[in-house]
Design a protein around this nucleic acid. Structure first.
Lengths: 188, 188
DNA sequence: CCCATTTTTTGACATAGGTCAAAAGAAACC
DNA sequence: GGTTTCTTTTGACCTATGTCAAAAAATGGG
């Protein structure tokens, strides 16, 4: 999924708006295991993923990584709180495969929000969509067994299991990797 | 917190816009224990709470209520997914105290979004804010002990403990009410 | 292709928090 | 103000999942 098509499918931009908007994005090739943002830094950019998978994660006091979210092709990726409020990020952003990204700075995004009503609408729709996704995960995590959480994940990220390490998925689901491993073995 | 001030503080609306926007909201008095939406219904309105506390909850297969979120004065309340996508709601919306609400329909809200760029911006800001809140809860729930989750709650809803039943809070935190009760006793 | 490193699986054991049941306390209602 | 109903606390016991450790399998670089 490329950025132009994605934007078109979400809001019906006149083509001159679309061109102007796209011109503020910058193409970046990023290698596997690269960090886009570290915990404590202000997240400077919003990324659109044309190709690749990424995740956000944080470190516990014990030094363990906890995956917060996965981001795949055709989605925007950022440390949202940090990017929008310009706070130090609570999360690391990491690419888990070689990736092609399109990035935009906060400044330029704000400029586009102010310039185009349509752009503001896009922002609203993306936020709302992400919000419902996070709420769905919350429902799954809040009161379900390890097995049910795993089933939820398959609906949100169907093929993630083949793309990222088991340990990353386990922490995303709020369980240890041993538990996830046993769960998989037991699954018929 | 009333609606006019709330809007003013969030986006700098010209006063004629503000007046027009406000005119689409309708004041409603709702009594304690009233349901605004039932599971399975499409949520028709977005509510602003001037006074009172509400919650969203769902029923498990075993018939237990699980609180999803609390909504207090000065916040918008809705079954977000249902309201914005016009899907059947996964949640009940219930007021837990006698309340004063201002409601707007989806139709009118869309009309205002289309009419005023500022309104679209408001929508975006509210979504983003809610998103960061939900993400915070998720972090708390995903990998923390019962005690830590409880501490998180106190930052998000400092005085909620005095306003709503313990069982509602327990399920919000993803634990049983017995566990929450024991936790409180043990807290110095 | 081999060695080093990382990831996944397996086993033995520990424990936080769940379940069930009943008592105690508060609130609501006539 | 006494009875009913709802809410919170307490106790005894249980289980899903965590922890720690080590083996097995997969991956990656030279």
């Amino acid at each position: 999924m490329n950025l132009t098509n994605y934007l078109k499918n979400t809001v019906s931009f006149p083509s001159e708006e679309l061109e102007d908007i796209i011109s503020y994005f910058e193409r970046e090739s990023v290698q596997k295991n690269n960090l886009l943002v570290r915990q404590g830094q202000v997240c400077a950019k919003l990324y659109f993923i044309e190709k690749g998978v990424g995740r956000s994660y944080y470190l516990t006091e014990a030094g363990k990584e906890v995956t917060q979210w996965f981001f795949i092709e055709g989605q925007f990726m950022s440390s949202i709180e940090s990017f929008f409020q310009q706070n130090p990020s609570l999360y690391y952003l990491e690419m888990l495969e070689d990736a092609v990204l399109y990035s935009i700075t906060r400044e330029n995004l704000d400029l586009l929000f102010a310039r185009y009503h349509n752009m503001e609408k896009l922002g609203r729709l993306l936020s709302t969509e992400m919000l419902t996704r996070v709420v769905n995960k919350l429902s799954a995590i809040q009161f379900q067994t390890a097995r049910e959480r795993h089933d939820y994940m398959l609906t949100e990220f169907p093929d993630i299991a083949n793309r990222v390490a088991l340990g990353h998925i386990a922490s995303y689901l709020g369980m240890t990797q041993e538990t996830l491993s046993r769960l998989r073995r037991a699954t018929p």
